[in-house]
Each structure stands twice: as structure tokens, then as C-alpha cells.
Design a protein around this nucleic acid. Sequence first.
DNA 1: CTGAAAGCGCTAACAA
DNA 2: TTGTTAGCGCTTTCAG
Lengths: 342, 342
Amino acid sequence: MKRNIFSMSVTIKDLAKELNLSVATISKALKDSHEISPETKQRVFELAKKVNYTPNPYASSLRKRSSKTIAVVLPEVADSFFSLAINGIEKVARERGYHVLIYLTHESFDREEAILKEFQSGRVDGILISVSEETSSGNHIKKIIDEDVPVVFFDRISEDVNTATITTDDFESGYKATSHLIDQGCKKISFVKTSAGLSIINKRLEGYEKALEERKIKHSDADIIQCNDDPENNYQLIKKLLQKKNHPDGLIASVEKLTTPVYRACKELNLQIPGDIKLISFTNLQTASILNPSLTTIMQPAFEMGKIAATLLFKRIEKPNFDLTKEHVVIPSSLQVRESTG
Amino acid sequence: MKRNIFSMSVTIKDLAKELNLSVATISKALKDSHEISPETKQRVFELAKKVNYTPNPYASSLRKRSSKTIAVVLPEVADSFFSLAINGIEKVARERGYHVLIYLTHESFDREEAILKEFQSGRVDGILISVSEETSSGNHIKKIIDEDVPVVFFDRISEDVNTATITTDDFESGYKATSHLIDQGCKKISFVKTSAGLSIINKRLEGYEKALEERKIKHSDADIIQCNDDPENNYQLIKKLLQKKNHPDGLIASVEKLTTPVYRACKELNLQIPGDIKLISFTNLQTASILNPSLTTIMQPAFEMGKIAATLLFKRIEKPNFDLTKEHVVIPSSLQVRESTG
DNA sequence: CTGAAAGCGCTAACAA
DNA sequence: TTGTTAGCGCTTTCAG
């Protein structure tokens, strides 16, 4: 492939030669610097347009030590919350001319650590992260912050890292969900959770316990079902719970992926929802409304959270003395009452 | 922040100084070149590890004219197909040490064009794309290919661009879905589609028409419902269809997002599924199985398609004479029969 | 086996 | 207003 002004990537040098100007002049003209005469700018713009000049991003990144790209690191993407969050993030990134690199940890701490390590030498100007289930220590994240690349957490935070967080009111929504079930007459409410020590899940759980205590509903550890990442295992656990003669009459699925096994188990065991058991799930799934009976949900403002997280990150990127450690936004989830708790 | 060997990004130069070697030697040692003595390599590796050296990716990209990153451009991400595809793509990218930039067109051609333009100056080594609904011409894509950056299409292709494609058997699955409904006794089958001239939807439609003709089922344009991007509008259209005295007794939702309005409309109108109307939807949604009645679906092998698309792309990236224009993989969708067509 | 030097494309002092 | 120059950090001849 020829490398002249009509093919391959055109460089500033090419433009300079063509117009008999120096590269410096072209560079400045291109960014509309006031040091350059209108006429020159005009000529430069025209030629640039004509030959379809696009700056080499890496040359510029190297020189300016900023890449105009951010990283989004997520546990997974096949989940309505994260899908929507990506949408929000991408939206504000695009508006500001930033690029977004996406990384999936698949809930593995090792992978998360390996990924974070890549951000040590200026690959990205900032990081948006929702930590994996396995993540307990935040040292890998602190290390990056020490290198002066800003990090903001959204949804799943690491409590020992001191930086901006965008979360929902997990405690309150656990409380709200539970209170709603109690209001609807439930006397024995189970809380189904995922494996690890995710702080958001634990907060939901605390809300659940608080509500039960306030309303003087007796409960025991047996009401809290610990699931893991194996769908079949989870299904069996839930089924076992619902098979008991004194099975719960209310159930909270604390994460989206537990919705399907719960419905399946009820169907399999011929338990009527909401007659025999009332259900609430933490999810943003569109299809909640067309389940039969339709599903009462706690919906997180996923898109909004993504947008706010990204906005804060950019604020810090563009204004390095903006203090992220002071930013802790909590956006309320909403309870969508539907038939499953009717 | 100090810039010495114990803080901030360490560079090759720092290592060189520390070990009294030249940067060239360090660079070669780091990539385990045979020109370097084992002892030297050893020393270099140790120091690099100790001071946590990470190469500056942009310096290297600039010099090597390759970025070890690919772009994935998608219409949206809040859709089970794309979510799963991203998973597949990310998996193989990670295995090969590539980074992935994500871009959303939100079904807008203009946005797609603007995004593609960014790939002109070596930002990415290759592109995976599923075109927007509005995309009819492929010139913006051809331009990129002309600059020698490889492109592979997955799912939604642009027919006038000659490069690798990974698709499902859309015609066959349209045919299969329709035949299934006929087998189940449907006499009047509607096909609900989205707005634009997406080739995959039209192929599904052709399969539908073929099946009807083969089985001598009369049908008219009125059986084909044209939706758009406005959920409320779509809901009304579908409702109007189902309200007719001689409403269809079978319905194919040709894209995932039409599933919800169809179910909603049936419920609203008190139509029994599958008694009054049988339903099939093109979707990979987990929740299809817990809808009530559970939903018969055509499932695309999304994860697999993402993986294959990425694999082909990397093959081409790593072996520039590998001819993408000859690669056209078609992976069959599968019909999941459930209660909604019972 | 090691090093000197050139240069990827761009930006930013500084000079003219 | 424009140009000269010196890098950003790395890779890669080519010489020693």
C-alpha cells in the first residue's frame, strides 16, 4: 500500500509538506490555536478534510500522557444491571470524546487483579469498576490509585479503598422488600443470596433482618439460603427449601440470576405464586412484567448509576484536584409492586 | 509524585540505568530475545518484577504500528444476544492478550459512521461489527478495510462489504419457526418485525413466507407487522392486530424486544396462550423458560458466534495474508419448543 | 552478546 | 504568526 497523501494514514508531516508549513504550525492549526492566522487554519482544515486526516491517537497519547480512554471493569455483562450501566457509561464517554475499554472478571479475583495491573502505565485515564464476588482486599486497586489513575466504584464497591462510590440504597431496599412482604401477610420469609461476601448483598440482608426484627417476625439462619455460581446447584437448594412442609410464604431473590431457579422451583413443586408463596427479586429485567404472575421487583437505577459514575470520573480526569474521596452518591432503588406479592 | 524507580511508571530507561545496561538490551531481554545472555535476562526480569515494570502500551503501539486492541461495535448492549456475544469476544481477546474497545451505535447510522472514522489511524488492529438498523450502505466500512484494518461482521452484516461474516441461518430459522406453528395447527400466522431493512430480519421473513407457501397457507401483507423503536407504538400496533375479530392464531416475534409487548397485549386482551394464539420469539433470554406459559424460542448461538468472529479476526490480524473474504460461517439457531406453542 | 542511534506521530517550549 | 527542536517510551536496524 502506497504511503502518500492520498492513501494510508495521513500524518501531520504529510499535511505540512503539502502546504509548505511546519508540523508545529499544522498541529496548532488543527487544534484551532489562537497563535495561528485564520487563513492558515483555513488552508489546514481544508486539506485535512480533503485527505481525510485522522490524528494518530497513540502518538498523541504518548506525548500528552493521556489516552482519552477509560476502562470499565465488570463481573459480567449478561445481566440487566450491567448492560444498562454500560449504556449509561458509553453515553457520557462518547459525549466527551472518550473511548471505553471493557474488561470482564467473571467474578474472579485473580482475573480482576491481572486486569488492573494493565492499567499501570497509562493505558487509561480512569477506571470504573464494580468488583468481583471474590474481591475482599482492595490492594490491587489502591496500587492503581497510587499511580494517580482515578478510580470510581459503582454498585459493587471495595470498602477498604477510599475513592468515589455510586451505589444504591441496598440496606433500604432489603428493608423495603421485606417490609412489603410482611405487609402482604408473610410470616416466614426467606432470603436467597449468592456466595461470597459482596457488601451490597450483605447490606440487603441487613435490611431484611432489620425489617424482620422491627416487625417481630422470628427468623433463623435456615431462612437464608446461600447460593453459588452453579445454576443447577442453586436450583436444587431452592427446591429443597420450598419442599419443606413449613416452607417460607415469602422469598427474596437478592440477585437477578436467582429469579429463574425460584420460578422454576415453584412451578415444579406446584406452588402458587402469590397464593402459596410471595416473591420479590432484585432485577431490572424487562420481562419481570410479563412473567405470570408478573414479578414484584427492586429495580436499581442502572443507567443512571453508570452515567453518574462516568460523569464523576471525567470530572476528576479533567480537574485533577477534584477530590473523589468525598463523593459518595447513593441513588435509591425502587420497589415495583406486581402480582407476585399480591 | 516523584518519578524514580520506586514510584510512578517505571520505564525501560529506568531499568537500564539501574542495571548499567542500554535500553536496547533491556528491551530485547524483556522479550526474551535470544541475542541476550541468560544472566542478563535474569537480572532484567528480576528488577522488572521488583519494581513492577509495565511497558507503556502507547509507546509500543506507536513504534510497532499495532495496538493489541480491537473494537467491537454494536447496536446496543441491553439485549441478550449482544451481551452473550460480548462474553465470547472478550474471552478470546483476553486469551490472546488483546484489549477490547466497545462502541454502541444505538441503531443510528450516523453514529456508526462517526465511530468507524475513529479507526482510520491505527487505533485498533481489527473490528468486529454488527451493523445498525439504519445501515444500508457499507461505504464507511469499506473505507476502513481499504486502510487495511480487518473487519468481521457478526449477526448483522452489510451485504455490500466483502469480508468475513458470522451469522445464523436466519432463513431456515424463520422457516422452522413458521413450520412449527403450522404443525401445531395454526392457520393464520403473523410475523412481527422491526423497522428497517435489516437483512437478518428479512431473511427470517423470507423463511416465514416460504414455509407458508409450501404449506399452502394463505397470507397477506396485513400479517406482517412493522414495528419501530418506540415501545409504546409497538405495543399499540400489536394490540390492534390482536384485537381484530379474526386475529392471528400464531405469531412470530422476530426480535427479542418484541416479546414483552406481545405478552402484554395478550394479557390485556385476555387471549390465552397457546389456546387462542401460539407464540414464538427470537431471543436468548433466560427468562423465556419461566414465562407462563413458557415461551417457545429460536435461540441464536450468541456466545459461540462472538467467539468465532473474534477467532477469525485474530487469525487475520496475526497472519495478514489470511483471506477474510472467503470466510462465511453460518451457525444454526435452535428451536426451543415450550408451552407457548403447545 | 551489547549498545548507539534513528524514528513511530505528535506536542510544547522556545526562538525567530 | 510561524518554525526549530526536543522529546514521550519503545523497537529495531546496524555496528561494535
